[in-house]
Measured scan of single mutants.
Amino acid sequence: MKVIFLKDVKGKGKKGEIKNVADGYARNFLFKQGLAIEATPANLKELE
């Protein structure tokens, strides 16, 4: 799953980066902790 990092995550990505991560990792950790959001077309447009 592609995500947009909202904060730096050690060993995974830095704020503003778009990366592929495991679905479970994204849903169970990154999204719940507010560290990333899903890289949907709408979210990508907001990032620009």
Rank of each mutant, 00 (worst) to 15 (best):
L35S: 04
G11M: 04
E17L: 03
L35H: 04
D23K: 14
K14W: 09
E48S: 13
I37V: 13
D8N: 12
I4E: 02
F29D: 05
I18E: 03
K2S: 12
V3G: 00
K12N: 07
I37N: 02
F29G: 03
N43P: 04
F5G: 01
I4F: 08
L44A: 05
R27N: 06
K19D: 03
G16R: 02
F31K: 03
N28R: 12
V9I: 08
E46A: 15
D8A: 07
A22V: 09
E38T: 04
G11K: 05
E46N: 13
K32E: 09
N20Y: 15
E46L: 15
K12H: 15
F5N: 00
K19F: 06
K12T: 11
R27L: 12
F5K: 00
L6R: 03
A36Y: 01
K10V: 13
V3D: 01
Y25M: 06
T40L: 06
K10G: 08
T40K: 05
V21E: 03
D23L: 14
K7H: 12
G24S: 15
V9G: 01
K32D: 08
K14P: 01
L30N: 00
N28D: 13
G34K: 09
K15Q: 09
K32A: 13
L47T: 07
G13N: 02
N20K: 12
I18H: 03
K32Y: 07
K12A: 15
F29L: 08
K45P: 05
A42I: 10
V9P: 01
E48A: 14
A26M: 08
R27A: 07
G16N: 07
D23E: 15
G34I: 03
A39R: 01
L44W: 06
G34M: 08
M1L: 14
F29T: 09
P41G: 09
K32M: 11
E17W: 04
V3F: 00
F29W: 13
P41H: 10
L35N: 02
V21L: 05
V3W: 01
V9H: 02
L30H: 00
L6H: 01
E48N: 12
K45T: 09
K7Q: 13
V21S: 02
L6S: 02
K32G: 07
L44H: 05
E46Q: 14
I37G: 02
A39S: 04
A39Q: 02
I4G: 00
I18Y: 03
K7R: 13
A42P: 07
I37S: 04
E48D: 11
A36R: 00
L47W: 15
A36N: 00
V9D: 01
A39G: 04
V3N: 00
Q33T: 09
E17A: 06
T40F: 05
V3R: 00
N20Q: 13
F29Q: 08
M1P: 04
G24N: 14
K14H: 10
P41A: 13
K15F: 06
G16T: 02
A42R: 10
F31M: 06
K14Y: 12
I4P: 00
Y25Q: 05
D8E: 07
Q33W: 15
N20T: 15
F29R: 06
I18A: 04
V9W: 05
L44M: 11
D8T: 12
N28I: 08
N20V: 15
L35W: 11
F29P: 02
K15T: 08
K32L: 12
K14A: 09
E46G: 12
I18F: 04
A39I: 05
N28F: 12
V21G: 00
E17M: 06
V9A: 03
Y25E: 08
I4M: 08
Q33K: 14
G13V: 06
A42W: 07
N28A: 10
P41T: 10
K2M: 15
M1F: 08
F31S: 02
K19E: 03
I18G: 01
A42D: 12
R27I: 14
K12R: 12
I37M: 10
K45L: 13
N20M: 15
K19L: 10
G13Y: 13
A22W: 10
K32P: 15
K12G: 13
V21I: 09
E48G: 13
Q33H: 15
L30T: 00
E17V: 03
K12V: 15
N43Q: 08
T40P: 05
L47H: 11
V21H: 02
E38M: 10
E38F: 05
E48H: 13
P41L: 12
Q33L: 15
A26W: 11
K7P: 00
P41E: 14
N43R: 09
F5L: 08
E46I: 14
T40I: 06
K45G: 09
G34P: 00
L35Q: 04
K15Y: 06
M1Q: 05
D23A: 15
Q33R: 14
E17D: 12
N43H: 10
V9N: 01
K10Y: 13
T40R: 04
K19Q: 07
G13I: 05
D23S: 14
V3Q: 00
P41N: 09
V21T: 03
G13M: 03
N43E: 06
Q33A: 11
G34Q: 08
F31L: 11
E38K: 08
D23T: 15
A26I: 09
D8P: 04
I18K: 03
A39E: 02
K2Y: 15
N20A: 11
N43L: 12
A26H: 04
L6M: 08
N43A: 12
K45D: 09
N28V: 07
G34H: 10
I18T: 06
I4R: 04
K14G: 06
D8Q: 04
Y25W: 10
P41D: 13
A36M: 00
F5D: 00
M1R: 08
G16P: 01
K2L: 15
G24W: 15
I18M: 07
K14Q: 10
E17P: 00
K14V: 09
I37K: 08
G34A: 07
K10T: 11
E48Q: 14
Q33S: 09
N43Y: 08
G16I: 00
K19P: 00
L6E: 00
G24M: 12
K10P: 15
F29A: 06
G11S: 05
R27F: 10
A36Q: 00
V9R: 02
A39H: 06
A36F: 01
I37E: 05
I18R: 02
F5S: 00
A22L: 10
T40G: 04
K14F: 12
E38H: 07
R27P: 02
A42S: 12
E17F: 02
E48P: 09
E38Y: 06
K45N: 10
